[in-house]
Structure formats: structure tokens, C-alpha cells
Design a protein around this nucleic acid. Structure first.
Lengths: 333, 333
DNA sequence: GTGAAAGCGCTAACAC
DNA sequence: GTGTTAGCGCTTTCAC
């Protein structure tokens, strides 16, 4: 039981294959009588046009590819959702693939998408090398999201990691904090390193250097961030404030702070998370705006497809620090 | 600057197009010398096989389609992530489309996927009619997730909404609660109605009928659930316990409960959410296990593709109630 | 072990 | 306004 083709419809309606094609594609130059006859047969045979064939003919597909760490991460889920919304308006579908933070898997996902002839690729690059991308590029516009790669020749849409981390930590130093801990998720990520740079710069501005004991860029799961935080609180000289470098880490930190009843520790998160506004005190955060990043990336893709992209761009999506209480706690005297 | 084809490689290597095809597809029956020559040219020309053409020839694509409310919902993000993991092992890619709860958009997403000749469809149906699905079905295995449609002839993978809601509410009545509020997200969803049924049954078992004032199935955003909760708490006879019918509503309820300092109100959520374990008291919940649903749905899809699917199945993924404190609060005397 | 030719479903020329 | 033809890139006979 195969799907009917243009040919089948044409035979059934007693017209040529091309006439059916015209009807299906809404051409106006078709005799009204033939048109209705064809439409009737299309309906009866349940004819569904085959995009594969169309795309093969056209030389390019009608989907755009999104390759990210994992769709289960709310940051990337929002980002991808925004990409889909913009893509859909342009009549493009969305395929996605997750890397699981593995650069070999990233390569295989990208390769699969290149074989599928996606129109363009939106990629959150892993920590690995990206020379291979040069090879797909001629055929395929690539827009990076969230982080750049060493080779600066790609379009990127991201936030100002260094600057925002600096702003957050300066927010804390302005309230007298000097022992400020840094809890991140994975030092291998360039974003974590940039946020760490901002952290150090803010401390340097108040003539302080970070106590290595307070710098924990490592955890990859919440529970680790919780453990790191518990460990920090148990130090001889514990931190008076904590900067969490991403929402995942922040959730772990928040858990530790609450289960040990330490609302006196100042706390700022890089990225919002559900219930951050509900905790006592509510969690001050730097907004990451994933959906703005996704929408901007997709707009950039459309520009490439239009041929209006011009020079390589490094787009910094504007964000802000939202004061909710936890970041405004003054240092204890 | 077009992508090179088998033909280009063949010409360059001085062999036939078929030999190149064999090499690319890893056939063993190729002269080693020719093989290396071809491989060298493939590398030099950056040849990328065209899946579109392969699929056209094969008559079917190599992706599976996932159509859900929105990928920004953590429930569906986890579900989709699990689908992708299983699909990838089977060598299949994942396309997704969101309905935005709109049944017209659902139809257009499904239609787009049918045109793309996805191998199978995993669908979380909207509230609208689904007669149209009958038409795609012959060509396309369909597995529903999270909720069924009126026509019971589709495979479904879901949890036991009625039974779990009953279990949650019975958990509350067992602790003396009789004034138990129901806060949902959208009455139009069949899942909400099933959960409401379970709610009513549990109350009936203790010879109580629900006070209509306490039943709020309507909110669609957190802020609404927050407002509904504040309104409930302000009643002359407020509820002593609240059952939130989904995580989105639960986040709203939790916010209201915490900002008004009402830890005395018992509370159970249908579905876990980040920080549910961190709040005071930690939130008791019924597990929804989205990733088990996604994995089971994809396994079912693979069975269809193997031709081993057999009868239509209604798969109920086992779940459990996790006691964390908020659901174990006894009624005040 | 290798190659020539046909055809997957469609659209874009180009006749009629 | 409508039909015929060629060919998109690939795989699959079936000869050699």
C-alpha cells in the first residue's frame, strides 16, 4: 500500500501530471473545471505531496537544524522553541539533535543534518575542536548560539558572559562582600571560563583576589552543586556570598542554602529558574533570555538564506540584573 | 558552488558511479585499490551523501516526527529528549513541531511531517477533533503520548491520570482533610478532566462531595494559579489542602503558599518540578516520568517499524507518589 | 568485482 | 491553458 503520487492522481483524473502539480501548488493558470476535478481526486486518493522529491529537485531541504547540549535543559528548550516559532513563519521545519556534551556526537549530529540537506544550522558548540565545521560551511550557513568557538569566523548569538558575571559579582562587592564563592557547572565550557573571568575582574576591582578555596567551577549535576555549597559553608572561613554561574548550579546552591537555613548568605544566579522568585529571600539573577537568543539566531539564519547576511556578526543579546532580595544582602559585620 | 555528487566523485576517481556508491555504503565487494582511490577523492571533494535522494529512492525518510504542545514545557522537553535518545540508537533523526495548544496548528504540523515522509509520528493530541489522523495513518504509524483521543484505536503511552489523582487526594483525605482544592491548568484537556475525576472519586469515598468553590480547573499560566490560590485562601471557609493537577499550576500554588506564609496548608503536586524538594515543607508529588513515556513511545514506534506491533496498545507507565512533607500535613483541628 | 540504465516523485523548461 | 521531456542524486536490477 504505497502513497499515491502525482502520477496516480493524474491518471485517475485523466489529466497530465503537470496539471496536477499546478493545482497542488496553487497555480492560477488552471482551468477551473480541471482544477475541481483534480482536487476531488486528490481528496479521494489522500494524495500527500512528497517534500523529499521537491527538495531533491530544488537542491535543498526545507528544515533548519538545531544542535544543542540537550533539549532537556530548560535554557535550550526555550531557545529551540523560539527558533521553531520564527522558522515556522518562514515555512521551515525544525530538526534537532543533542550532543550530550560530547564532541564526537556533535560531529555525527551535524553530519547527519548535512546529509539531510538542512537549510542552515544553529549550533551550541561543545568544548571540542571545530575544524570540521569549515567543511560543511560552504554548503550550509552556520550560526552559533550561547558560545563561540576558537575560530572567530562564525556568526554567534550570545550574552556577554564576562560582563554579566562581572556585574553580578560587583553587585555583591558593592554590598561589602569579599569572600564570594563561584559555583559553576563545567570548567571546560568557554562560557564558564568567561563568567569566571568576570568574577575575577570584579574582585580585582576591589583589590581582592579570589581565594582558590572558594572557586568551584566543576559540578555538572545539581546534586554536586549542593555538595559543593555544603562544603563551602563548612569552611573555616566560609563565603558570605555565592555566585552561581548557571541555573543548574543555582538550583543546587539554593537547595543547600535552604536546607541548612542560611538565608544570610547573599546569592546571585546566572540565569533565572522556576521558583527563584518564591524562595526566601527571592533569588537575584542575571537574565539569560534564551528565547531572545533563539529568535535572534533564527533571524540571522534567515538573513543568510536571503543573502543579506553580510559580515560575520557577534551578536550580544542585551540582558539585565533583576534584584529580588538574595543579591542585596549586606555583608555581616 | 554546488555540493559534489556521486557522479562528481566517480568522474574524478575514474570509476563508475556505482563503485563510489558501494564504497560510501561500506560494501565489502570492492577492490581495495579502487576503494582507497575513491575514499581519497571523497575526502578531497568533501562529498556528503544526500539523504533526501536516498530516502526518495527508498520511499521513506529516516526521521521520526514529534508533535507536542510546546518544547518549552519541561515535561515535553524531557519526553522529547528520551525519544531522541532511543531514535538515535536506531539511526533515526528527530523532527519536532509544537501545536501551541491549537488544533489547526497541530494539523498543519502533522501534514508537514507527512509531506516530509517521517517514518512515524509521536503526537500529544490537542483538544480538537482528530478524524483527520485517520487519513495519515495508513502511511504512518502514530503513537499518542500523554493523552488519548476520542477514537480509541491509537496506541497511547501515558500515566493513569484518574488513578494517580485519586491516590493523591486519598493521601490527603487519609490525613483528615475534607476541604481540598483542585487547581488545574485547562479544563479542556482530557488529562485535566481525568485528574478531576480521580479527585471527585477520592472525595466520594469519604462521603464528601467537592465544594464547587474549591474546584479551579481553569488557569493556564502560573500567575493564574497563584491568583486562584490567593483567592482560595481568602475564602470564608478556605481549603486545608490543595491538589495541583500539573507542575505549572503547582509552581503557581507554591508561590502563593510561600509568599503568604501558609506552610500549614497541605499540598500535593501532579508532577515534580525544580526546587520542589527545597521548599519548606518540601512538596509531595505524584511522579509523571516524562522520559519513561518518551522512551516507551519510541519503543512502540520501533515495534511498528519492525512490523511486530500487533494489537493497539494503551500503555500505562507506572509511577508513584513521593512523600516529601507537604502532603503529609494533618488537618488542623 | 564492476558498470550501464532505469526510475524513485517532483518541478522547470519548453513546446503545443 | 496544458502536456511532454529531462533530470535532481541516489540505489537497484542485471549484464559484463
Amino acid at each position: 500500500m504505497k502513497a499515491p503520487t502525482l502520477h496516480d492522481v493524474a491518471a485517475e483524473a485523466g489529466v497530465s501530471i503537470k496539471t496536477v502539480s499546478r493545482v497542488v501548488n496553487g497555480a492560477t493558470t488552471v482551468d477551473p473545471e480541471l482544477r475541481t476535478r483534480v482536487e476531488e481526486v486528490v481528496e479521494r486518493l489522500q494524495y500527500v505531496p512528497n517534500t523529499l522529491a521537491r527538495s531533491l529537485k530544488a537542491g535543498t531541504g526545507d528544515t533548519i537544524g538545531v544542535v544543542i547540549d540537550t533539549i532537556a535543559d530548560p535554557f535550550f528548550a526555550s531557545l529551540t522553541s523560539a527558533v521553531e516559532d520564527v522558522a515556522l513563519e518562514a515555512g521551515l521545519g525544525t530538526v534537532f539533535g543533542s550532543t550530550g556534551f560530547d564532541s564526537a556526537r556533535e560531529r555525527s549530529q551535524v553530519s547527519r543534518m548535512a546529509m539531510q540537506r538542512v537549510r542552515a544550522l544553529i549550533l551550541a558548540p561543545t568544548a571540542g575542536g571545530h575544524e570540521y565545521l569549515q567543511q560543511v560551511r560552504p554548503a550550509l550557513p552556520v550560526v552559533l548560539v550561547d558560545r563561540a568557538v576558537a575560530d572567530g569566523s562564525y556568526d554567534v548569538v550570545r550574552v556577554d558572559d564576562e560582563g554579566l558575571a562581572h556585574q553580578a559579582v560587583a553587585h555583591l562587592t558593592a554590598r561589602g562582600h569579599r569572600r564570594i564563592a563561584f559555583v559553576g557547572s563545567d570548567k571546560r565550557f568557554i562560557t564558564t571560563r568567561h563568567r569566571l573571568d568576570g568574577y575575577h575582574r570584579a574582585l580585582a576591582e576591589v583589590d581582592t583576589s579570589a581565594d582558590p578555596e572558594l572557586v568551584r567551577p566543576g559540578p555538572t549535576r545539581d546534586v554536586d552543586a549542593t555538595e559543593e555549597t555544603l562544603d563551602l559553608l563548612a569552611l573555616k572561613e566560609p563565603p558570605t556570598a555565592i555566585f552561581a554561574a548557571n541555573p543548574r548550579a543555582a538550583i543546587g546552591v539554593a537547595h543547600a542554602l535552604h536546607t541548612t537555613s542560611r538565608p544570610d548568605v547573599a546569592f546571585i544566579s546566572f540565569g533565572d529558574f522556576p521558583l527563584a522568585r518564591t524562595l526566601e529571600p527571592a533569588v537575584t539573577f542575571v537574565d539569560q533570555d534564551p528565547s531572545a537568543i533563539g529568535a535572534a539566531a533564527m533571524e540571522r539564519v534567515l538573513a543568510h538564506l536571503d543573502g543579506t547576511a553580510g559580515q560575520t556578526q557577534d551578536i550580544i543579546v542585551p540582558t539585565r540584573l533583576v534584584e529580588r532580595g538574595s543579591g542585596e544582602i549586606e555583608v555581616r559585620r
